Simulated scan of single mutants.
Amino acid sequence: MRNGFLKLFIGFLFLFLEFRIGPIDVLADPAGIGFIYVGLDQLSKVVEVNATLRQLTALLIVLALPSMFYPKFDIHDEWSWWGIYNNGVGFMYIILTYHLFQYMLKVASHFNHHSLFQQTSRLFPLYIIVVLITEMYLPFTMNFHNSLLNGLILILILVVFLLYIMFLLLLLKYRRVEKVE
């Protein structure tokens, strides 16, 4: 369990960070998703991972390859091919996270860790809803020039940042899950 959740943590950390040397993303998304895939493979030996989560992770490794060469945050036209690609992969990351939260609940239930189950149950809907709203809302913000709306956008981005940190910390807590006899 320990190594599997550590790999999930590292994978999501790679997805969170973007470190570029020239045009190349050193902490590439496909590598992060690869860590997630390997972590899920290790965890499946203890608690079964559903096929959807495995297949989605494998698909995202391939689909995320172009993101190594094009910055996520340098898309000026959300309706260009790169913008549509970026938004599509972003939605697939949300679906991946949704299925991972489901798996985490399954692990907490399997090992009878009620406090971890409750923490995950509270963060799960909040994280998915806020990130989904942000993913749907941000492409339309390029048309807003109102300072109040810009402030709301900044607050929304900060909330997503905090939720992502909470998610990463929750993954680290799962590293300590052991069978309660």
Rank of each mutant, 00 (worst) to 15 (best):
D74F: 04
Q55V: 07
Y70L: 10
Q119K: 06
P71S: 06
L148V: 13
R20F: 11
A108Y: 15
K72G: 05
L63W: 11
G151W: 14
L132G: 09
Y37E: 05
Y137I: 07
L149E: 11
Q55E: 12
Y137S: 15
W81V: 13
Y70G: 01
G83I: 15
Y93R: 12
R122P: 02
Y93D: 11
N146Q: 09
F73N: 06
V47Q: 02
A58V: 11
M68F: 08
L65F: 12
D25W: 04
M68W: 06
M136Q: 12
I94P: 09
I133T: 15
I94H: 02
S67K: 08
R20I: 00
I94V: 10
Y127R: 11
P66Y: 09
G34E: 06
T57I: 01
L17V: 10
V49R: 05
I133L: 15
L156Y: 13
T141H: 11
T52C: 00
N143R: 15
S67I: 09
G90K: 01
L60W: 00
I153A: 02
M92T: 06
G90L: 11
L13W: 09
D41E: 06
A31K: 05
A58T: 03
V38F: 10
Q118K: 14
I133A: 09
L13R: 02
I21R: 11
Q102T: 01
Y37V: 08
T57G: 03
F12M: 08
A31P: 08
I84E: 14
P23L: 00
T57S: 03
E135A: 12
L123T: 13
F14T: 02
T97L: 02
L138S: 13
F35L: 05
I153C: 12
S115M: 09
I61S: 02
Y93I: 09
L17K: 07
F19V: 14
A58W: 09
G11I: 00
H114G: 08
Y37T: 10
I24H: 03
Y127M: 15
Y70H: 15
F117Y: 01
L17Y: 09
H145D: 12
W81S: 13
